[in-house]
């Protein structure tokens, strides 16, 4: 997945390979610009324009969907694969009622009448715990609070019973208590409907609460992939250690949070070797070659050998 820009071709996502099982929640975590959102947008064909080029393969329910004509992808988008976005303030069209917008999606993918779609919109709003849904359905987005709007977005995303829900930082723009409610709601809905969720976030705390499996991304490349347990308890990549260290913990001995030195690199000057090497405390000679993803279920892209990783991680644990 790359963009042509004035400063040269940017590989926004490079060498990412991941799978999402039925009913599973996969978290994608990384700093801003690490290619989390872009990778998901490209799957759905939401990135368009002459400067975008996407290579690779995307299989959904056993079918190749990448590069299919927009007409076919449209039938998939919103129906089988739905999406929730980061900023609920701007993600709804301001001039239509919330119910109208939900009904629009339902009517796009089903043969329901206007009245039936409207009723379904009310039911959906009730399902995402919006109080007084039959009144709320006729209100405009600006009459909803941020958390309510995100609930409405979720109701809309769920309207056609998608088998995959992609949530792009669904809680980033919300305050902490609302965040927890939204995550709870997502988990609850998933349990009830058995759909798969891809959760994009930069918040390790969110990941540790809901994800079954975790993909850690840096500079458009996967750094580490594994189950939540593996990535959080037995992280193997120095970048993951950095992310974990940056989460505030009540039981920490340290007064200050650990930060990863330096800034995320611009995707324009990703080094030929390990992308994280310029910021990595443990870099050595081998890091000038690009590390492959190694491992069986728990994969990581770091040249340190397993024993050394174990030791380094233990040191960090000890220090915190």
């Amino acid at each position: 997945m790359s963009f042509a820009t004035r400063a040269g071709v940017v590989r926004a996502v490079d060498g990412l390979s991941m799978s999402v099982g039925r009913g599973e929640t996969v978290g994608i975590v990384g700093e801003s610009g690490s290619g989390k959102s872009v990778s998901m947008y490209s799957i759905l064909g939401l990135l368009r324009g002459p400067n975008v080029s996407i290579e690779g393969r995307v299989r959904f329910n056993g079918q190749d969907i990448l590069g299919r004509p927009d007409r076919e992808l449209r039938a998939l988008r919103g129906k089988d694969i739905a999406m929730i976005f980061q900023d609920p303030m701007t993600a709804l069209t301001p001039v239509y009622t919330v119910g109208w917008q939900i009904a629009e999606q339902i009517r796009q993918h089903t043969d329901l009448t206007k009245r039936q779609a409207h009723q379904r919109a009310i039911d959906l709003l009730a399902e995402v715990a919006i109080p007084d849904p039959s009144r709320r359905v006729n209100q405009y987005p600006h009459e909803f609070s941020g958390g309510m709007r995100q609930r409405a977005m979720i109701a809309m995303a769920l309207s056609c019973e998608p088998s995959l829900l992609i949530a792009d930082e669904p809680t980033t723009a919300l305050d902490v208590t609302t965040q927890a409610q939204i995550l709870e709601l997502l988990a609850e809905l998933q349990e009830r409907r058995g759909s798969s969720i891809v959760l994009i976030t930069h918040d390790m705390g969110v990941i540790s609460e809901v994800a079954d499996r975790v993909v850690v991304m840096y500079a458009g490349r996967p750094a580490e992939i594994g189950t939540r347990q593996e990535v959080i308890r037995e992280a193997r990549h120095p970048y993951t250690w950095g992310l974990l260290g940056a989460v505030p913990r009540l039981d920490s001995k340290r007064a200050r949070l650990v930060t990863i030195p330096g800034n995320p690199i611009s995707p324009l000057d990703v080094p030929p070797g390990c992308a994280f090497a310029p910021r990595c405390t443990y870099r050595h000679d081998r890091c000038s070659d690009r590390p492959p993803m190694r491992g069986t279920d728990h994969l990581d892209a770091c040249w340190l050998d397993d024993a050394e990783k174990e030791q380094r991680r233990a040191e960090i644990e000890e220090a915190s």
């Binding site: 449209r74 039938a75 999406m83 993600a91 069209t93 977005m153």
Partner: peptide, 21 residues
């Protein structure tokens, strides 16, 4: 705008996105 991205994610046709949204 973000709402156009939402409309695309809903699976609406480009024409409908352009005119209605």
């Amino acid at each position: 705008e973000d709402y156009v991205r939402t409309a695309r994610a809903k699976g609406l046709s480009e024409r409908r996105i352009l005119i209605r949204h």
